[in-house]
């Protein structure tokens, strides 16, 4: 039974880990751009970036199929020119998890960046820091707690992803079957013992992550 849990657990960690890395890079970059630069359509872009939080995962999965399916806008090009497709692969699962978890990183990163006192960035500039210096020596060190907390939530959300992953990557044991899909299969097959075990593993990992991110989000004793 442990072996039956280990394969989906490792796959889940791999998918959630890659998805978290992807959302972290894209989410932090976009959040910084939106927090520091006013441009027309900024709040519209913010809303689009937040949309996956409120949309049903199946709808997101459908959008992704439209984009990366073999006849999709991006997927069609990939298949015709490079002969690859993301459909029914673990990389497709990464993409699905990324989209679903993206708002968690993006929202917390934007709030964290907006919470950094602009005067501190100005002070760094007058002290000779380049824009990269301002970002890496002042802005990021002051915002990282919020970003990290959002990232851990994104990881937990990625671990539990079901709907969008199912539509994009399917439910192939050993290939794209993550924990939440394995739980579904076990229940469908009447294997309550396996389901119990899988649920327990998932719960322990998620609770651990939530506790850790809660600690990070708690304000420090003094500024």
């Amino acid at each position: 039974m442990i072996g039956q849990a280990l394969v989906p657990l490792l796959l889940t960690l791999k998918v959630a880990g890659c998805a978290t890395l992807l959302t972290l890079i894209v989410g932090v970059a976009l959040a910084f751009a939106l927090a520091r630069h006013a441009f027309p359509g900024r709040e519209v872009l913010d809303a689009v970036c937040t949309l996956p939080l409120v949309m049903p995962p199946t709808v997101l999965g459908y959008y992704l199929i439209v984009l990366i399916g073999r006849r999709g806008w991006i997927g069609g090009w990939l298949y015709d020119n490079l002969g690859i497709t993301l459909m029914f692969t673990w990389q497709g699962a990464v993409l699905a998890s990324s989209v679903v978890a993206f708002p968690l990183v993006f929202k917390s990163a934007r709030a964290a960046f907006e919470g950094v006192d602009r005067q501190l960035e100005g002070a760094a500039r007058t002290l000779g820091a380049s824009e990269a210096g301002v970002f890496f020596r002042v802005t990021l060190p002051l915002a990282w707690r919020g970003i990290l907390a959002g990232t851990m939530l994104a990881f937990a959300r990625g671990m539990g992803e079901f709907g969008a992953t199912l539509m994009v990557a399917g439910n192939i044991p050993g290939k794209t079957q993550t924990l939440s899909l394995a739980v579904y299969d076990a229940v469908e097959a009447g294997r309550d013992d396996l389901a119990n075990f899988l649920v327990l593993v998932t719960s322990i990992v998620c609770v651990t992550i939530l506790l850790a991110s809660g600690r990070l989000l708690r304000p420090r004793l003094s500024a």
Binding site: D117, Q119, A123, T126, G128, A129, P141
Partner: peptide, 20 residues
């Protein structure tokens, strides 16, 4: 000129020390 090239020191009213 960007601030870093101006050689102008600035002391803010609330000092703006880097808290970290």
């Amino acid at each position: 000129l960007p601030p870093r090239a101006r050689k102008v020191g600035f002391v803010y009213q609330d000092y703006a020390l880097f808290p970290h």
